[in-house]
Simulated assay, not measured.
Amino acid sequence: MVLPVLVPARPRLGCMTLEAAADGSALGNPGPAGWGWYVDADRWASGGWERGTNNMGELTAVLDLLQQTGDLEEDLLVYCDSQYAIKSITQWMPGWKHKGWRKGDGKPVANVEIMKALDAAMRPNVRFQWVKGHAGHGLNEEADRLANAAAQAYAAGREPEAGPGFAGASPGGSEHAFEVTTRQPEADLFSLSEEVSDEDQVVALERSLLSDELRADPADVAGLLHPSWQEVGRSGRLRTREQLLAEIAPLAEPVELEVVDTQRLGPDLVLVLWRGSGDGGSTLRSSLWQRTGQQWRQRFHQATPEG
Rank of each mutant, 00 (worst) to 15 (best):
K97T: 11
V112H: 03
W37P: 04
R43D: 01
G34R: 13
G34V: 12
K103Q: 06
G34K: 15
W96N: 06
L59H: 07
N125R: 12
N55F: 07
G24K: 00
P108V: 09
K116E: 01
T17G: 02
Q83R: 06
V109H: 07
I114H: 07
G57S: 06
R10K: 10
F128L: 04
S88D: 01
Q129A: 10
A21L: 11
A26D: 04
S46H: 03
W96M: 09
L139K: 00
G24I: 00
I114F: 12
K107V: 14
W92I: 04
L18V: 07
T53C: 03
A85I: 06
A26M: 14
V131M: 04
R51W: 08
A33Q: 00
L59R: 06
D81C: 02
H98C: 10
V78G: 01
G136M: 12
K132F: 15
S88P: 04
G104D: 11
A61V: 05
L72N: 07
V109K: 08
A117Y: 07
Y84H: 02
A45C: 07
G106E: 04
T53P: 01
M16D: 06
E58S: 10
G31S: 00
E50H: 15
W96S: 06
L13I: 08
L139C: 01
W49F: 04
D42H: 10
K99S: 11
L66V: 12
W96C: 05
D64Y: 07
M16W: 15
G100E: 08
T90H: 14
A20D: 08
P11K: 09
L27V: 13
A26Y: 11
T69A: 15
K97D: 02
D42L: 06
L66N: 10
E58D: 09
L139F: 03
T60P: 13
G34F: 14
A21M: 11
W101E: 00
K107I: 13
L13M: 04
P94I: 02
G133L: 07
G136Y: 13
G31I: 00
L59Q: 01
H134I: 09
A26H: 12
M122L: 13
Q83I: 05
A21N: 05
A45S: 07
Q67I: 07
D71Y: 15
L13W: 10
G57K: 06
V62K: 05
M93W: 08
G24Q: 00
C80N: 03
G48Y: 04
L72R: 12
A110L: 13
L13G: 00
Q129C: 11
R102G: 04
P94T: 05
Q129S: 09
W35T: 09
